[in-house]
């Protein structure tokens, strides 16, 4: 667990279970948001301390996915799979799916976050990805 995280301001490991994403909840309207910020709630506009830092468990339902065949960045080699996920804790996020994701993905299936190495990056760095829960 001494590896560094690719985006330490966005997520962290959790001893209690899956990784957690660093978000906030609006004390005025209750909307949970990601990434964490205090500038203002996207739904009701409340800002500052009323937006409370929370952690969001990296678990949710797969809303959609797409195999990306063309990618100009050096951060990951194509093809890779991009997923759209509604977290059980609320927010809709987009995140790369695990390189070990099986071919038969299904919209609506449960997915869980894992911290894994990216072959295109430094071997000591891990990044958050998601994979089908039954594949774990």
């Amino acid at each position: 667990m001494s590896d560094r995280l690719e985006h330490p301001t966005l997520y962290e490991a959790s001893d209690a279970g899956p990784p957690v994403l660093l978000g906030h909840r609006c004390g005025q309207c209750g909307l949970a948001g990601f990434p964490r910020q205090s500038l203002g709630c996207e739904d009701c506009g409340a800002g500052g301390d009323i937006l409370k830092p929370i952690t969001l468990v990296a678990r949710g339902k797969l809303v959609s996915f797409a195999v990306v065949h063309r990618h100009v960045g050096k951060d990951i080699a194509a093809p890779f799979i991009m997923g759209e996920i509604t977290l059980d804790d609320g927010p809709l996020i987009r995140c790369t799916l695990s390189a070990e994701t099986p071919g038969a993905l299904m919209i609506g299936q449960s997915v869980l976050g894992v911290l894994e190495h990216n072959p295109a990056a430094d071997a000591s760095v891990r990044e958050l990805r998601f994979k089908p829960e039954q594949a774990l």
Binding site: L21, P35, A66, D75, C95
Partner: peptide, 19 residues
């Protein structure tokens, strides 16, 4: 910051909608 950073080009956004 964004989790997906530069990995969602416009065509990927719409590929997700198509799926």
């Amino acid at each position: 910051d964004f989790l997906e950073r530069e990995r969602v080009a416009a065509f990927t956004h719409f590929a997700l909608l198509a799926q």
